[in-house]
Simulated scan of single mutants.
Amino acid sequence: MCYLHLSQLFSTCVAFSLVANMGIWRGAIGNWSMSFWCVCFVVTLIISIVNLCKPWKHSPFFWCNFSVTYTCYASLICLSASIIYSITFVQFLPYGPYRDRAIAATAFSCIATVFYALEAVFLKTWYDLDDVTCYVHTFPGLLKVMETFVAGVIFAFLSNTSLYLHQPALEWCVAVYSICFIPAALAILLNLGKWQLRLPGPFPLFQLVLSLLSVVLYVSALTLWSLYHFNEEFGGHPQRSSDIGCINALTYDMCFWDLRLTVAILTAINLLIYVADMAYWARQVSVGTGGQSSAPDPLHSQAVSLQSSVSP
């Protein structure tokens, strides 16, 4: 774990430093990628310090879930930064030292992705040997991680408010992303602290209702976003060449049409994830797990056993 954390810190720090040293050639995508690498570096450093001090012995179950959850997020963050930075920025840079630095930063971002993925696999193997099941190692937990992560990437592309402020329908799409993100993040927090057992009703039924609502909202968002951005009858541009901004834009930055298309694709991806989430919880409720909220929970039993094992 120590070697993995040192490798992660080194890779993210080098990627961040290389892009930060590019000055005005960073571009908006460069600043966005830098923020991701910086967050990964800071959080990994904090986790490393906490692991050395070992205050988590008082709540090992929570720390187990938190560590694995962060590792999954960090691997997805570095992977997305590597792909987006290389596709939308690096390939358009002119040959020279700045392009070489951008390529090197992408390479170190890919290396960081590998190290974070290795840690996730290592933690899963370690906890499986101890008969401990972390939430993000389950199918619904992985879906929640994907839902919140894709929504976070959408928010990053929506940082340019010109994409939606001129139309109430597009503002509704942004509201949908926010409305659906909050329950998904709340579900992760509830499972990290085992607080879902305190809900007044069955947790599977609660998840099913939220997933169904999210699917309906995302269908409306995908429909409105596509109509108002790619349909000529609603003032959209069906082709990239019809968007004047893409013709006159700088070659090392994304134009509005590219941003609109990216948000539409991410919306469709998240809709599919929510559909899979809804199907999973519908099956759980249909087979009768919705009424088992008062039954002993294996994850809760693991938490109790972990607590007793570390208590003096």
Results as ranks from 00 to 15, higher is better:
Met1Trp: 14
Leu4Pro: 09
His5Pro: 09
Leu6Trp: 08
Gln8His: 11
Thr12Val: 10
Ala15Pro: 07
Gly23Trp: 12
Arg26Asn: 06
Ile29Arg: 05
Trp32Gly: 02
Met34Ser: 02
Met34Cys: 04
Cys38Asp: 04
Cys38Ile: 08
Phe41Asp: 00
Val42Ala: 09
Val42Phe: 10
Ser48Tyr: 10
Val50His: 10
Trp56Lys: 02
Phe61Asn: 06
Phe66Gly: 11
Ser67Arg: 12
Tyr70Lys: 05
Tyr70Asn: 04
Tyr73Asn: 13
Cys78Thr: 15
Ile83Cys: 11
Ser86Ile: 04
Tyr95Cys: 06
Gly96Thr: 07
Pro97Gln: 08
Tyr98Val: 01
Arg99Cys: 04
Asp100His: 04
Ala104Lys: 10
Ile111Asp: 00
Ala112Val: 13
Val114Pro: 01
Leu123Gly: 12
Tyr127Ile: 12
Tyr127Ala: 12
Asp131His: 08
Thr133Ala: 10
Cys134Met: 14
Leu142Ala: 08
Leu142Glu: 04
Lys144Ile: 05
Lys144Ala: 06
Val145Asp: 00
Thr148Gln: 00
Val153Lys: 12
Ile154Glu: 00
Ile154Arg: 01
Phe155Leu: 05
Leu158Tyr: 03
Thr161Gln: 10
His166Ala: 12
His166Arg: 12
Leu170Ser: 05
Glu171Ile: 15
Ala175Thr: 06
Cys180His: 09
Phe181Gln: 01
Ala184Glu: 03
Ala185Gln: 01
Ile188Ala: 00
Leu190Pro: 11
Leu192Ile: 13
Leu192Gln: 11
Lys194Met: 14
Lys194Cys: 07
Pro202Trp: 06
Phe203Gly: 02
Leu208Met: 02
Val215Thr: 09
Leu217Phe: 14
Leu224Gln: 02
Ser226Asp: 00
His229Ala: 01
Phe230Leu: 01
Asn231Asp: 08
Glu232Cys: 07
Gly236Leu: 10
Pro238Met: 04
Asp243His: 08
Ala249Lys: 09
Leu250Lys: 14
Asp253Val: 14
Phe256His: 10
Ala264Cys: 07
Asn270Gln: 14
Leu272Arg: 07
Val275Ile: 15
Arg283Met: 13
Ser286His: 08
Gln292Gly: 05
Asp297Trp: 13
Gln302Trp: 03
Ala303Val: 06
Val304Arg: 14
Gln307Ser: 03
